[in-house]
């Protein structure tokens, strides 16, 4: 596969999430794929689909925009901006109506046209702050907005 073909696979994954057509992921992600999300690990396509479905359910207007993308060898890297509104229950948390924007990056390894492994890094700080789940005490010398 060429670098451009590998990038096209990642674009299709993001498109499937935005269109909320999760079944499309079957053709793009290997069934035994491992996704590292910060320090957690999601094992297998089915588990990954459940995570994405729960997010779409909780945040039905979820939109993921690709801000930067590059590829080398079997790897594709993306920087993403996610916007979503918490209008339904999410992990047992009643809807807060909060509109949230966050940044994520992910690096994927693609073999024979399917994602076999991914590493995503997110800062969930703003997300949890907005949902009222955490309180940030701040550093003494920090200007906390």
């Amino acid at each position: 596969m060429s670098l451009e073909e590998n990038k096209a696979i990642i674009r299709k994954v993001i498109e499937a999430i935005n269109k909320q057509n999760i079944a499309l992921l079957d053709e793009l992600i290997a069934s035994d794929c491992v996704y590292h999300m910060n320090v957690q690990q999601i094992q297998g396509l089915e588990a990954l689909k459940q995570v994405i479905e729960a997010e779409i359910k909780g945040f039905p207007d979820l939109h993921v925009a690709i801000k930067d993308m590059m590829a080398e060898g079997d790897k594709v890297c993306v920087r993403l901006e996610e916007t979503f509104t918490h209008t339904n229950e999410f992990r047992g948390l009643a809807p807060t109506g909060k509109k949230i924007t966050d940044t994520a990056v992910a690096i994927f390894s693609i073999v024979e046209g399917k994602i076999v492994e991914g590493w995503g890094v997110y800062d969930q700080m703003d997300f949890f702050k907005q949902l009222g789940v955490i309180e940030y005490k701040g550093f003494p010398d920090e200007k906390v907005s």
Partner: peptide
């Protein structure tokens, strides 16, 4: 140690 869970957060995690 700069993060505290709210009551809501304690139920969630």
């Amino acid at each position: 140690g700069l993060i505290e869970y709210t009551e809501k957060g304690k139920k969630l995690f």
